[in-house]
Computed example of a mutant assay.
Amino acid sequence: MLEVRDLRAGYGGTEVLRGLSLSVGQGEVVAVLGSNGVGKTTLNMTLSGLVEPWSGEILFEGRPIHGRKPSEVVSAGLVHVPEGRKIFPNLTVLENLVLGGYRRSKTGRNTNIERVFRTFPRLKERMKQAAGTLSGGEQQMLAIGRGLMSEPKLLILDEPSLGLSPLLVEEMFGLIEQLAKDGLPIMLVEQNVVQSLDVASRAYILENGHVVLSGAAETLRDDPELKRAYLGL
């Protein structure tokens, strides 16, 4: 689905991504893990067309998308749910969802809304409520639901557990597992190492803008030396 080859990008004269390569296959949940400042957000913004890559390739379904406009990336089916939710607080839940589907046909909008409500029944209960009055967990559900409205072929989730209580974190990772079981490939970009490795099939560990470790999530989770050296566990 997604292949990133030797990607370099940054801001001004500062290089953030330094030859990063990774891939996400059909039906996979792939975790991209690392602490603050290692380049995770820059990677997501570059994949989404918000940051122009300096060099390297981004292939989606075998076709290059590096250098394309964000709207074209979304239309291709690569959808990014950003860190911090970025919902429209003064609009209702339903209005936020409708905006998420603006690149798709009006005929499919109601079908997509019903799909979101089946996935997140709590959003249906609050469909006429201002999004800014939702709890943190509900706002994260809305952000993911808005992403689903764009009919993604691959979904990038950027720090979906950020700022949530432990109970809501458990619920959020359960929802991610359900989306994956429904057949949606996911690139999960997180600092929550333990639970990300529990839901992922493979993982990449980032340091200083490049991949320092990659492999099966089970291997990375269970190897004590890898935990000490790279995961801080």
Rank of each mutant, 00 (worst) to 15 (best):
L155I: 13
I156L: 14
Q139E: 05
G174V: 11
E177C: 07
A143S: 11
L157N: 05
A216Q: 14
L154P: 05
E159F: 00
N208Q: 01
S214M: 07
L155N: 12
Q139L: 04
M172Q: 12
G215D: 03
D198C: 09
A203R: 10
V189L: 01
S196C: 10
R221Y: 07
G209R: 13
V212T: 05
N192T: 06
Q191N: 01
F173W: 03
L155C: 12
Q178C: 05
N192H: 15
E159S: 01
D222F: 03
V193G: 11
P166C: 10
R146I: 00
Q191D: 02
N192V: 14
I205Q: 08
I176D: 11
I186E: 14
Q195M: 10
S201K: 11
I186T: 12
M172T: 15
S201G: 15
S196V: 14
A216N: 12
A143V: 09
I186L: 13
L162N: 13
Q140D: 06
L164G: 00
M149Y: 07
E190A: 05
I176S: 10
E207G: 05
A143W: 05
L188H: 10
E151W: 05
A200E: 14
R202T: 02
P166Y: 05
M172I: 15
S196K: 06
K181W: 02
A203I: 09
A216S: 11
D198W: 08
I144F: 05
L167F: 08
L220V: 15
L213R: 13
L154I: 09
D198K: 15
T219D: 14
K153I: 00
P152V: 02
I205S: 06
